[in-house]
Simulated scan of single mutants.
Amino acid sequence: MPTSIKALGTQGSDQPIELLTIERRDLQPDDVQFDILYCGICHSDLHLAHNDFGGSRYPMVPGHEIVGRVTAVGSEVKRFKVGDMAAVGCIVDSCGTCPACHRDLEQFCSGEGGTSLSFNTPDKYLGGVTFGGYSQAYVCKEAYTLHMPEGMDPAAGAPLLCAGITVYSPLKHWGAGAGKVVGIVGIGGLGHVAIRIARAMGAHVVCFTTSQGKVEDAKRLGAHEAVLSTDADQMKAFASRVDILIDTVSAPHDVNAYLNLLAIDGSMVLVGLPNEPLQVGAFNVVKGRRSFSGSNIGGIAETQEMLDFCAEHDIVADIELISADRVNEAYERLEKNDVRYRFVIDMATLA
């Protein structure tokens, strides 16, 4: 029989986060079950809870930056045992047979049913939709469950399950490293992790922010240089100098000012999720053979690679650990960008 547990969720786009009771499926032979210790709050949790992109389904339990301790494993599980630290990010299933899955790009699965996400997608086992990590426990197929590296702070490491892989994947794909200038647009939940990862890859890191306070914080985070993007003279000084530009901004903004920072063959990669279309001037990409691209999280193997890379380089997120009863307050503050730099829920407080 499915197990009933406590969770935090919402009944509608205009409703607060509240205490709910949900069900987790019976343990299947290839499943890992774990008690959730910490769950990060991602900006996309907020967008989906508020139905900013359309298609949200309720009741909804958000959360896809999930870390916990294994309490049971199925009879066919080989890589986990009771007591291990485990994690689940955005992806909990895919078809496994399409061209994307064969390339370990489960996030782009084109097979029947597509990618199953940790919340708000059809639940193949119980019906309805999947419920996320704002809850007491999780059950996931072993193939989509990740190992949290030993010694990593599990609370500060939780945001890496989304924020970390979202920036690691494009930095790796577009070749960040020694001899490259990497620009980071926006110093928030994604941007502050991107600074640390790009620096660890050996790149020269330049931050672009509208906040003077974050200009001052950028070097603490690992940036070599920081630019106040509202200052035209500071922006002009970096024209045609940046090889890879990671745009983490999830609000409407003018991307053309940043495209002009790209060197010849430079790429600007959008990883933020503005809920309005962005306009791109043709001459801003034609000149210099520049590219405006996008990237969306990463596959399971790459996510594990990212966790191991971050553990090797002592990279975690800057977090504000909150109790379960403060999630609505956190959402209100997140809408105002009032966090440095990621909220994480201590799920023990749900009990």
Rank of each mutant, 00 (worst) to 15 (best):
291 S>K: 08
293 S>G: 06
280 V>K: 09
296 N>T: 14
270 L>C: 06
291 S>N: 15
275 N>Y: 07
277 P>W: 12
269 V>L: 10
288 G>S: 13
283 F>Q: 08
286 V>D: 02
299 G>V: 10
284 N>S: 15
278 L>Q: 10
292 F>L: 13
276 E>P: 00
292 F>K: 08
291 S>Q: 14
297 I>H: 11
285 V>D: 05
276 E>M: 08
280 V>T: 11
284 N>Q: 14
272 G>I: 07
283 F>A: 11
271 V>C: 02
295 S>D: 05
281 G>Y: 07
288 G>F: 11
293 S>K: 13
290 R>I: 03
283 F>E: 04
272 G>Q: 03
293 S>C: 14
275 N>T: 14
301 A>R: 15
282 A>P: 06
283 F>D: 06
291 S>M: 11
270 L>P: 02
289 R>D: 03
297 I>W: 05
276 E>D: 11
278 L>G: 03
291 S>C: 13
301 A>F: 06
290 R>Y: 02
275 N>H: 15
296 N>F: 15
272 G>M: 09
302 E>V: 02
300 I>P: 03
290 R>A: 00
281 G>A: 15
296 N>V: 13
297 I>Y: 09
294 G>L: 05
282 A>V: 13
274 P>W: 07
301 A>L: 09
286 V>E: 00
294 G>N: 13
279 Q>V: 08
294 G>A: 11
269 V>M: 05
271 V>A: 12
282 A>K: 04
293 S>T: 04
281 G>L: 13
269 V>Y: 03
302 E>H: 11
295 S>Q: 09
275 N>R: 09
282 A>D: 09
296 N>G: 03
284 N>T: 12
279 Q>E: 13
289 R>W: 08
296 N>C: 07
299 G>E: 02
279 Q>S: 14
287 K>L: 11
287 K>H: 05
292 F>P: 08
293 S>A: 14
272 G>Y: 03
270 L>I: 10
275 N>K: 09
277 P>Y: 08
288 G>W: 03
299 G>F: 04
287 K>V: 11
290 R>W: 02
294 G>C: 14
276 E>F: 01
285 V>W: 01
280 V>P: 02
279 Q>M: 10
290 R>P: 00
298 G>M: 08
291 S>R: 14
277 P>F: 07
287 K>E: 03
270 L>F: 05
270 L>G: 00
273 L>K: 01
277 P>C: 07
288 G>K: 10
293 S>W: 02
293 S>D: 14
298 G>K: 04
292 F>N: 01
